[in-house]
């Protein structure tokens, strides 16, 4: 689909993609965030492109771990997430995340697609408008822009 047509978003349309890395001290996962993410995914607000776990042991060594490999509290339904991993993170990604982890903790990395944007853009496209640009803005750049404009 080109920008000129007015079709709705199909499976090939891709919303902006972000990631989150959440650390659980002592590897104790907490349920509420996973439940909320599941709800967002079920509603089609986000699409989960990858979910991977990284463990950092007491000696500071880190590695990817599978959900089946560590203790999960009773109230965390990780079975719902089985199959969410697409294995996109490589060793350098693991190192980058592990650098921020405390020893003995487990982190989850979620790569998600902001699918809500597609519906939003479609609403405009349906009436003949055209998406001409989009992008992300690092927080630091925003702060710099605020600084620059406030100096005048």
């Amino acid at each position: 689909m080109t920008a000129e047509t007015q079709q709705g978003s199909g499976d090939d349309d891709l919303g902006p993609i972000d990631f989150l890395a959440i650390e659980f001290p002592q590897g104790r996962l907490t349920a509420s965030g996973f439940e909320k993410l599941l709800s967002l995914a079920d509603q089609g607000i986000v699409g989960i492109l990858d979910m991977e776990f990284i463990a950092k042991d007491a000696d500071g060594k880190s590695k990817k771990v599978d959900v089946w490999q560590f203790a999960v509290p009773a109230d965390v339904d990780l079975a719902a997430w089985a199959g969410a991993s697409s294995g996109l993170l490589d060793d350098s990604d693991v190192d980058e995340i592990a650098a921020s982890m405390q020893p003995g903790s487990v982190a989850v990395v979620v790569i998600y697609e902001n699918r809500w944007v597609l519906g939003l853009v479609d609403a405009w496209r349906h009436d003949g408008a055209r998406l001409i640009a989009n992008g992300g803005i690092p927080a630091g750049d925003l702060v710099a822009a605020l600084d620059a404009t406030e100096r005048t």
Binding site: T2, G10, D12, D13, L14, I17, L89, I97, I132, N134
Partner: peptide
């Protein structure tokens, strides 16, 4: 790719012009 105009996808790892997978995904 259909959908968004090609110039404007916000995929940080796609900013590199090399078609190969960049060293860092995150």
């Amino acid at each position: 790719m259909v959908g968004y105009p090609p110039a404007t996808l916000w995929l940080p790892w796609m900013r590199l012009s090399a078609p190969d997978r960049p060293q860092r995904f995150l």
